[in-house]
Design a protein around this nucleic acid. Structure first.
Length: 352
DNA sequence: CTTCATGATTGATG
DNA sequence: CATCAATCATGAAG
């Protein structure tokens, strides 16, 4: 009785298998999965060990002892990434384990049933393939959501640059020094920007941003910046004197070779002016406030000679010219009509 | 909390 | 493309 039933089942089987054949090969397009895999590998989620992260942070260690803020965000980023990584790996492992368990379970079941009904090894294989396929789609979903998480993290990290972090003391120091020692023409060349960026431990575009902001804000109300102008003028003055005494061959800052050949004279001019500003800085507050204007005026004279005819005029006249005509024309429209306005704002500060 | 300082972004300009 | 001007968004200070 039993063999007869078995043979009948076999016959039925033959028929059904034929109909199933067509459906068998579903051929999942793995292009997507490949992309995801590549991305995960590129992001370091599925790659080697977690403490091997990308190069940029290593580059950040350019000049010794510049405590950059980037490291904080980098570590934050890495922490989040490794978290994602951990979850991803644990989930992946879980899925794989479940997959193999389920497969063996099904195989055992089929083997057991093969005693009572006809099951070819090929069929078992097909079954296993189907199971693997199902689990791989689950894995793909896992990978996809991991990718999304990484992308979100990454975009947030990139957005973090919008979140302002104040520059280090060193950076502002360097930038201000350059700015106030080139007050007449605070447009650093590309090389100068790179130099400043290196010294301050910031990027070139950050230097550009800073100078853009500084120029416009300085022009907007100079009075507010007189104090720090004097401070940095004095600072560079000390620097310059020490340099001038020795040799100016090895100037400590701004090679400025590429920026303009006319800067040849500028060094001596700077030192001269800065010395003046230093001396008068302590003597009279009013003089101090004017000094930076004098500074830039002298610069203009030395560099361009544009204002040769006006040099002899009174102080505030030159100051006004400087204020209006220095970098571009523009700003301080009230200065001509109301002469008291411009310096007035200065002495309202009356710090010293 | 508000206010100010300040780095970054955006749009216009030449 | 560099710069200016306005604006945004946040950090720090009060």
């Amino acid at each position: 009785m039993k063999p007869a039933l078995f043979s009948v089942l076999c016959e039925i089987k033959e028929k059904t298998v034929l109909s199933i054949r067509g459906i068998q090969e579903e051929d999942p397009p793995d292009a997507q999965l490949m992309r995801l895999d590549n991305m995960l590998l590129a992001e370091g989620v599925s790659g080697p060990e977690k403490r091997g992260r990308s190069g940029p942070p290593a580059i950040a260690a350019t000049s010794g002892g510049c405590p950059n803020d980037n490291s904080i965000e980098h570590s934050d980023y890495r922490a989040k990434l490794s978290q994602i990584r951990q979850i991803y790996h644990s989930e992946l492992e879980k899925y794989e384990q479940a997959c193999s368990e389920f497969t063996t379970h099904v195989m055992n079941l089929l083997r057991e049933q093969s005693r009572t009904r006809p099951i070819s090894p090929k069929e078992i294989e097909r079954m296993v393939n189907i199971i693997h396929g199902k689990f791989s789609t689950i894995q793909m979903q896992l990978k996809q959501s991991t990718c999304e998480a990484v992308m979100i993290l990454r975009s947030r990290f990139l957005d973090a640059r919008r979140k302002r972090r104040n520059f280090s003391k060193q950076a502002t120091e360097v930038l201000n020094e350059y700015f106030y020692s080139h007050l007449s023409n605070p447009y650093p060349s590309e090389e100068a920007k790179e130099e400043l960026a290196k010294k301050g431990g910031i990027t070139v575009s950050q230097v550009s941003n800073w100078f853009g902001n500084k120029r416009i804000r300085y022009k907007k109300n100079m009075g507010k910046f007189q104090e720090e102008a004097n401070i940095y003028a004095a600072k560079t003055a000390v620097d310059a004197t020490s340099v001038v005494q020795g040799s100016q061959a090895s100037s400590p800052h701004t090679p400025n070779s590429g920026s303009s050949g006319s800067f040849k004279m500028t060094n001596s001019g700077d030192s001269f002016i800065n010395l003046q500003s230093l001396t008068s800085y302590q003597s009279s507050p009013v003089g101090g406030s004017v000094q930076s204007q004098m500074d830039s005026l002298h610069h203009v004279i030395h560099q361009t000679g544009r204002y040769d005819g006006i040099v002899g005029n009174s102080l505030y006249t030159t100051q006004r010219i400087d204020a209006n005509g220095s970098w571009q024309d523009a700003a301080t429209p009230s200065s001509i009509t109301s002469p008291a306005g411009d310096p007035g704002s200065v002495n309202s500060d009356a710090s010293n």
